[in-house]
Nucleic acid binder design. Structure first.
Lengths: 349, 349
DNA sequence: TATGCGTGATGAACCGTTTCCTTGTCCCAA
DNA sequence: TTGGGACAAGGAAACGGTTCATCACGCATA
């Protein structure tokens, strides 16, 4: 059973291969009837054009590369899944690669994708400081961790955190602690700025509520836990009544720290996170968090690469708003929570 | 700056394109010195062969397709990441696709990958009952959810669960409940058999320990929770003292159910899961679980597709042993836990 | 009637490799 | 000395599409 090629189709349809090709590519200059006939034959034969041959001549591979630091991070795996979806809707496929937050590996991945002749690259850059070296003509869009000098798409971290902190303020909190991300990370800084925005705007009552309650930490669970320990290990009247963490994993680590210290959540401490990973709705109690619009980001990235949407200019990234997901870890501060007993939080919904 | 092609290399090295090609493909019939010279030129020019052209002629794409039901499932995302690693080590790249546990989508993905001329497919079949329709000549290896009739690779679920349940038995438990997976799922059945194996082998003392404590559920968190509620909603002397869940997510849901019922873990109830997802080590307390050897599975799958390892025969899959990861959710049963008070579990490590 | 033009289709060139067939060389055995 | 075999390298065909230059045709215009 020899492979069926474009020539077979052409022969059966009694047209030239060129015509079949134009049918395949929706080229306008082919009459409706002819198009129908050719398509009929194509289905009948079950013909599928060979992508290698196509791309060799046309320089279009219908392949998009995506490079992320770590696929086991739920944020990124959801990102990849969304991108795959969006790409599939356009007849494109996705090649995934992980950089493990290693600049050298990342550069290597980019090289591989380049030689694969992908039509574009979606990149979540590694946290190592570095610049991207890539051949011009290869569209690249930087996601989530924006880099100065490259057109990017991300959630509006700054505004998102601001909204989250404002939510805590609205609940009545004044001493609001903040667990920031690693200093050198761009989104970490943006989130921190969002915290400052909210706190500064809230004015005197807050500014005087105590010395800055800020802890720097990596984005992971364990770091969040020790940051939480740090913030909470002080006298009750100096201790924050709420903590906003820069990631859900940090927030969950912080919850653990609170439990270990016997501080009930949310009775004596409100905790909110950032990201909206699936895990955040599985904790006990459910975490309040700012959800990132992952699907929107992924879809926009694909749209940009496919020229369905203008690429964002280098100095003005596309930002999508975050959305507050109210869980059970936040509540109004209880001024009378001073009974001295270390009560356990109720484990009900 | 025109693209550098094989001809440019050939010209500069003063050899024929054929020779360059043979250098590229490690063909033996080219002298050391010539090989060195050509490689020199290749590096100098930064030449990278065009994969489309290569694959068109040679029928080898150095691409592997992987189809999984859902990338946000941490088990699968780790699987994909491991596969990507293994493939990268061999100069191969991975195209990911998600089937959303939908047989029709899955078939479509397979068709896409086929037309992409991937060199092989790694498939976690959807749970819909179905048979695979695929062109012969395309190597496919079924992972995790084995299907009769296809050569597969998986963890030894049955034995793994048996070991896990034996661990609970060894701790002294007799009334051991089991949350099974969906009935129609092959691995779910294997796991259930493992439970039966252990219980039957344990003999009289266990068989008489009460009526079967078995709940069927989907693999997810919410299902585990309601299954847990079902198993635990009975008089204390009929209630299981330990529960083995078929997935970590179920186990975590079950933990939630126990908390809601005021049953301390592990003081009054031991819980163990299956899979070893990262989340399992983040729960409070940390979950005891049977860890699946995901990397081994992924690496073996890639090795099979690349002919570095013989494909498993259709009726004898390759199985890898699971490994017990002792967490804090399991302990010896406390016969004196009958104080009547509903104590909260200590939240310490 | 002759000319020009737009349209739909043709056929061949072309994309950048791999691979097959051929040729030239060298060495060894007859 | 020469025929033959092994081996290295060259040259061109082949892979399966896309695209470009071209052409035939019908119709409006001069």
């Amino acid at each position: 059973m020899p492979k069926v090629g474009i020539r077979d189709v052409a022969k059966l349809a009694e047209v030239s291969t060129g015509t079949v090709s134009r049918v395949l590519n929706d080229h306008p200059s082919v009459t409706q009837e002819l198009r129908a006939r050719v398509n009929g034959i194509i289905n009948e034969l079950g013909y599928m054009p060979d992508p290698s041959a196509r791309s060799m001549r046309s320089k279009v591979s219908r392949l998009i590369g995506i490079i992320i630091p770590d696929l086991t991070n739920p944020f990124f795996s959801e990102l990849v899944q969304s991108a795959e979806q969006a790409a599939a809707n356009h007849g494109y496929n996705i090649i995934v690669m992980t950089s493990f937050d290693h600049a050298a590996k990342e550069a290597d991945r980019i090289r591989q994708l380049t030689s694969r002749k992908v039509d574009g690259i979606i990149l979540v850059p590694s946290n190592d400081f570095h610049t991207l070296k890539l051949p011009k003509g290869l569209p690249i869009v930087v996601i989530d961790r924006l880099m100065p000098g490259y057109s990017g798409i991300a959630a509006d971290h700054r505004n998102g955190v601001r909204l989250g902190v404002e939510y805590l303020l609205k609940l009545g909190h004044r001493r609001i602690g903040f667990i920031s991300g690693p200093k050198h990370s761009v989104p970490a800084n943006d989130r921190f700025k969002g915290y400052l925005d909210a706190m500064e705007q809230a004015g005197d009552s807050v500014q005087n509520a105590g010395s800055p309650l800020i802890a720097e930490a990596a984005f992971d669970y364990e770091s969040g836990r020790s940051a939480g320990n740090y913030l909470l290990a002080r006298a009750r009247n100096e201790r924050p009544t709420a903590i906003f963490a820069s990631s859900d994993q940090q927030a969950i680590g912080c919850m653990r720290a609170a439990y270990d210290l016997g501080i009930p959540v949310p009775a004596a401490l409100s905790i909110a996170g950032f990201d909206g990973i699936p895990l955040s709705s599985m904790t006990i109690p459910r975490l309040t968090t700012m959800k990132q619009p992952i699907q929107k980001i992924a879809a926009a990235a694909v749209a940009v690469l496919l020229n369905e949407r203008p690429a964002p200019s280098v100095d003005q990234p596309i930002l999508f708003a975050c959305e507050l997901s109210e869980g059970e870890t936040t509540a109004a501060p209880q001024p009378d929570y001073d009974s001295g007993i270390v009560a356990r939080p109720p484990y009900r919904n």
